[in-house]
Design a protein around this nucleic acid. Structure first.
Lengths: 199, 199
DNA sequence: GGCAACGTACCGTCCGGTCGGTTTGGTGAG
DNA sequence: CTCACCAAACCGACCGGACGGTACGTTGCC
């Protein structure tokens, strides 16, 4: 496992530096020094600095997508499926908090083809989420007086914002926060104004 | 008004370029070319590239803060005050959409003292918002079973996320969206599960 | 003539990426 | 076991160029 160690160390160091300093202000030299390797070694495993950034996104995107696929394949009542999806994406986003920070801050720095690939993957997730909302609306459980795009944005905004306020060292528990946010969201999109707030 | 024209043009050009390309990847040369001025002229009005970024934030922050002060000074029932505040910050955030993009993406690139100043200003707004929630909770109109920090983050996430999905050219109307998002938020934080959704 | 408002040429620095060379780890013949 | 051999892994000095910022000259208005 010696060969992957270098790539791993570099990825780890890059993630931390990108998260704290930003992509553009982090030099390749800094990364390789933090990783304890040389520039030559790094360029042996990665094509470019850009490649490093993409690798970080890749890992997070593919994991979240595969989890979404699995949950939706299980089926069930639309509101319960949606609840599971919401809790899951919030929890995994907390697990990948540094990745999220880098993601939303530096995605626009990717070269065009790679950025398009990332956008495509994100849209896939987004669209799948949208079908859930649509189903719920068709069944009459979710409100239709607010545009679907607004409802969807209203949820993803929470996911997005996590890296700006949530701290694993803070008082809030990951699982609880995920349920609380999901609860706030579900209550706000239900067709009738009321409803209990079971976990 | 000839003297301010240069500074204005530069600020405008910088804002647009920062929003589309990011701060770090935009060179001073690009900015001055887009503004139709020279580098010398720019450095006559701004101390540094950093200064340009701060000026963009400054404008947005001071405007939103003064509007918040005014609304809260008017007083009224806590839920109505909060509603007004929410609608206002969403609408002004839409008015300042490019600023928002640059803000959340490049704030961490500011030099330490300036970044601290920005953080301080943001916290002021944040704290004032928190007192409103607190008052509502004390009066029994807002729920207390979810941590206040989560409720607050749940709202600001929407404000934050606007620059990622909202487009003035899109189908959504600014005023409507502001009311819809506010509505979703208020419904989710009310103490009882129900309630009408007046605009 | 004096001062603010610019214009321009240039500097020191740093950065992503490269490239020729060296080390290392595995293999198979003897 | 040994040694020749090779490919992959790795090293690090170096390059071309871009960038932020400055020094100093020039203009034009009072």
């Amino acid at each position: 496992m010696r060969t992957t160690s270098v790539a791993d160390q570099v990825t780890r160091a890059a993630l931390e530096l990108f998260a704290t300093q930003g992509y553009a202000t982090t030099s390749v030299q800094q990364i390789v020094e933090a990783a304890g390797v040389t520039k030559g070694a790094m360029y042996h495993y990665f094509q470019s600095k850009d490649d490093l950034l993409f690798a970080i996104y890749e890992r997070m995107l593919s994991l979240q997508k595969s989890r979404l696929d699995e949950i939706m394949a299980r089926g069930g009542a639309v509101e319960e499926v949606l609840r599971t999806v919401c809790v899951d994406v919030i929890e995994t986003s907390i697990d990948f908090l540094p990745e999220g920070t880098v993601f939303f801050r530096s995605m626009h720095m990717l070269t065009a083809p790679r950025r398009q690939e990332v956008v495509r993957r994100r849209r896939e997730y987004h669209d799948q989420f949208a079908t859930l909302i649509e189903r719920g609306q068709a069944e009459g459980v979710f409100r239709t007086d607010v545009p679907r795009s607004v409802l969807i944005a209203h949820f993803f905004s929470d996911v997005h914002y996590l890296s700006h306020w949530y701290s694993p060292e803070g008082p809030e528990d990951k699982t609880e926060v995920a349920q609380q946010i999901t609860d706030l969201f579900l209550r706000s999109i239900r067709a009738n104004g009321g409803g209990a707030t079971d976990g």
